[in-house]
């Protein structure tokens, strides 16, 4: 690690039961509009009956290190802050939707007020030393959040000791949402 802060989220797919507490915690914390969500639950089932395998994942913006949304934004509304968190400055957003089209994870949406909205890794909570709302509420301890540049930290330890993957690494976006498998 080069010592630069890099926030990541680690999702333990072996523990997730898809209870959606993370989705509701996010809605409550961030006051997302009706019908929209910044995080969501995906359930994939592989195989041929009766030999099936299921994986449940809590997904959200990947806060990519090589974020295509930041590159595509014509006004600088999509930007990065400390720790690599990708944010949207509502005041600079024109609602042109280039960032939505550029996101391989379809993590963004147009807020009914006109600007583009998405997961902020609860930057307002992180700034005051707290963890994200979804991590705080998770009843099965599926979700972990932290600075991966700290080798002794929880997320670095999990990634060092457990088998993991990211979604669509072929995009080259270097996503920061890791799934323990």
């Amino acid at each position: 690690m080069n010592g630069e802060k890099r926030y990541v989220m680690v999702v333990d797919t072996r523990l997730c039961v898809g209870c959606k507490a993370c989705v509701l915690a996010c809605k409550a914390e961030n006051n997302t509009p009706d019908g929209y969500c910044r995080d969501w639950i995906v359930e994939d089932i592989w195989g041929i009956f009766p030999n099936l395998r299921a994986e449940i994942r809590s997904e959200r913006c990947n806060h990519c290190s090589n974020a295509p949304c930041v590159d595509a934004c014509p006004t600088g509304a999509s930007h990065k802050v400390e720790g690599g968190i990708v944010l949207v400055d509502h005041d600079k957003c024109t609602g042109c939707k280039a960032c939505i089209a550029s996101c391989p994870y379809d993590a963004r949406y147009v807020h009914p007020e006109g600007y583009v909205d998405k997961c902020t890794f609860c930057a307002h909570r992180v700034a005051s030393g707290k963890t994200t709302a979804c991590v705080a509420i998770c009843p099965t301890k599926t979700l972990h959040f932290g600075d991966v540049s700290d080798p002794h930290g929880e997320v670095a330890q999990l990634l060092a000791s457990r088998r993991h993957k990211v979604l669509h690494p072929e995009t080259g976006c270097e996503p920061n949402l890791y799934f323990l498998t």
Binding site: G35, W40, D106
Partner: peptide, 22 residues
């Protein structure tokens, strides 16, 4: 193994089930 089924709780307007922003 082949993916048999994919379900998501996300139903954001203009994003799901097919992107339609433009």
């Amino acid at each position: 193994p082949t993916l048999l089924e994919h379900t998501s709780t996300r139903v954001n307007a203009e994003i799901d089930p097919v992107l339609h922003i433009w």
